[in-house]
C-alpha cells in the first residue's frame, strides 16, 4: 500500500537519510522512534515532498513516483493521497476552524462547497470541536488547534496520514487528549505513520515500530519485540533511557 525504496537525502554535506526502505500495509499504524537528528521527520516530509529527497522511489496506493523524475503533477498526486499533521499545527491563520478543514476539500479536491461544509462540520464534531467552528486559530488553545489539524487531515480521507510529532508542542496535560484522538483515527482503519517520542503511545497503538538512528532504519518489528526483545545494541541503549513498565499507561 505504501512502499518506499532506497530514499536518500542530504542537506549540504550532511547526509540525513542513508538508503531508507519501508513497507506499510493498508490500515497499519506505524510508529517511528529514534533520537533527535535521526532523520525521522525528514523521512516523513520526504513522503509528501515537503522535502524533496535526492533519490529513491515512493509508492502510495497505485501511484508510483521515482524521485529523480518527479514532475509537478506527480508531486501533487502524491500529496493528494496523503494527509499531514504538523508538530506546530500550522493551521491557516486567516481561516476559521471550519474553513481550515474545507479549504483543502474545496480548492484542491474540487468538492462542491456545500458538501465540503457538511464533511467539515461532521469531522469537527468528530474531534469534539463543533462549537468552535467559527473561531480563528489565534483564538484556540494548542490542543484545540491540533484537533483541527487532525480533522483537516482526516476530512480529506487520504490513503495515509503522516503525523510529525503531533504532541511535542503541547502542554503536558493536553498530550493525553490528542493521543486519544489519534487512537480514534487509528480505529477508523486509516493507514498512519506517526513520528513520536511517546513510548507508551507507541506500545499501545502501533502495529509496527521502526527504530531509526543516524539516517538508517536500525530495527523494525512488532512493538512487543522492539520494546522487550530488541536485537540491536543501539535500540537497547535508546530504550534504556525510557523505563517502560507494562502498566504505565494506566497510571
Amino acid at each position: 500500500m505504501l512502499e518506499i525504496k532506497h530514499i536518500r537525502k542530504s542537506f549540504g554535506r550532511n547526509e540525513v537519510l542513508k538508503d531508507v526502505s519501508l513497507n506499510v500495509k493498508k490500515g497499519e499504524v506505524v510508529v517511528i522512534l529514534g533520537p533527535s537528528g535521526s532523520g525521522k521527520t525528514t523521512l516523513l516530509r520526504c513522503l509528501n515532498f515537503l522535502e524533496k529527497a535526492d533519490s529513491g522511489e515512493i509508492t502510495i496506493g497505485n501511484k508510483n513516483v521515482v524521485i529523480q523524475n518527479a514532475g509537478r503533477k506527480d508531486i501533487l498526486d502524491l500529496r493528494r493521497k496523503t494527509g499531514f499533521v504538523f508538530q506546530n499545527y500550522n493551521l491557516f491563520a486567516n481561516k476559521t476552524a471550519l474553513e481550515n478543514i474545507m479549504e483543502g476539500l474545496v480548492t484542491a479536491r474540487k468538492v462542491p462547497k456545500k458538501d465540503a461544509r457538511n464533511i467539515a462540520e461532521e469531522t469537527l464534531k468528530w474531534v469534539g470541536l463543533h462549537d468552535k467552528a467559527d473561531y480563528y486559530p489565534s483564538q484556540l488553545s494548542g490542543g484545540q488547534q491540533q484537533r483541527v489539524g487532525i480533522a483537516r487531515a482526516v476530512a480529506l480521507n487520504p490513503e495515509v496520514i503522516l503525523f510529525d510529532e503531533p504532541t511535542s508542542a503541547l502542554d503536558p496535560e493536553l498530550v493525553g487528549e490528542i493521543l486519544e484522538l489519534i487512537k480514534k483515527v487509528a480505529t477508523k482503519g486509516i493507514t498512519m505513520i506517526v513520528v513520536t517520542h511517546e513510548m507508551t503511545f507507541a506500545q499501545d497503538v502501533a502495529d509496527k515500530v521502526i527504530f531509526m538512528d543516524g539516517g538508517v532504519v536500525v530495527e523494525e518489528g512488532a512493538p512487543k519485540e522492539i520494546f522487550y526483545r530488541p536485537k540491536e545494541e543501539r535500540t537497547k541503549q535508546f530504550l534504556a533511557k525510557f523505563i517502560i513498565p507494562d502498566n504505565m499507561y494506566y497510571i
Binding site: 509528501n48 515532498f49 515537503l50 501533487l76 500529496r79 493528494r80 496523503t82 494527509g83 499531514f84 504538523f86 506546530n88 500550522n90 493551521l91 491557516f92 491563520a93 479549504e103 483543502g104 480548492t107 484542491a108 479536491r109 483537516r152 487531515a153 480529506l156
Partner: peptide
C-alpha cells in the same frame, strides 16, 4: 509569513 503556512497548504494538495 511562517513557512508552515505554505507547507500546510501544500500538504492538503493545493498548488
Amino acid at each position: 509569513i511562517n513557512k508552515g503556512q505554505y507547507e500546510a497548504s501544500y500538504s492538503v494538495g493545493m498548488t
